[in-house]
């Protein structure tokens, strides 16, 4: 299990407007592409220095492919990263202020303290 790699996905997609749109429109395509091209990128290095060992396990990949932010919370993905990216994708569909943000929280109400550990 790699909370780090989940966070790396959320971090690198959230900061790139093109990737945000691709993730919204076709999450399976984007996640597959990202794992093949970016999961092993050492972000401040040239491609020749890529890592060799990063990959999602099946539950992580499925959570990302299905836009399942509840599963990401359970897996210990950093909730700030998840929230920020999911707001970017879905807040635009709001019919009233904060509608998506409130629904996001409501879908997590079955979690009690302590929440899943986010330490990486």
């Amino acid at each position: 299990m790699s909370k780090y790699l989940l966070n790396k996905f959320l971090f690198t997609v959230d900061r790139d407007p093109e990737l945000v749109e691709r993730y919204r429109e076709d999450p399976r395509e984007l996640v597959t592409w990202w794992e093949a091209t970016t999961a092993n990128r050492l972000l401040n290095c040239v491609a020749a220095e890529d890592s060799t060992w990063q990959r999602f396990d099946d539950a992580e990949r499925e959570a990302l492919v299905t836009h399942d932010h509840v599963a990401l919370f359970a897996l210990g993905a950093h909730p700030f990263l998840t929230l920020t990216l999911f707001i970017a994708m879905f807040e635009r569909d709001n019919t009233e202020p904060l509608e998506y943000q409130k629904a996001f929280g409501a879908r997590l109400t079955h979690f009690a303290l302590p929440y899943p550990d986010i330490a990486t």
Binding site: F73, L81, L108, F111
Partner: peptide, 10 residues
């Protein structure tokens, strides 16, 4: 403060 959890945006 709660961000990305069940108690946010209350």
């Amino acid at each position: 403060l709660e961000l990305g959890g069940p108690r946010q945006f209350g």
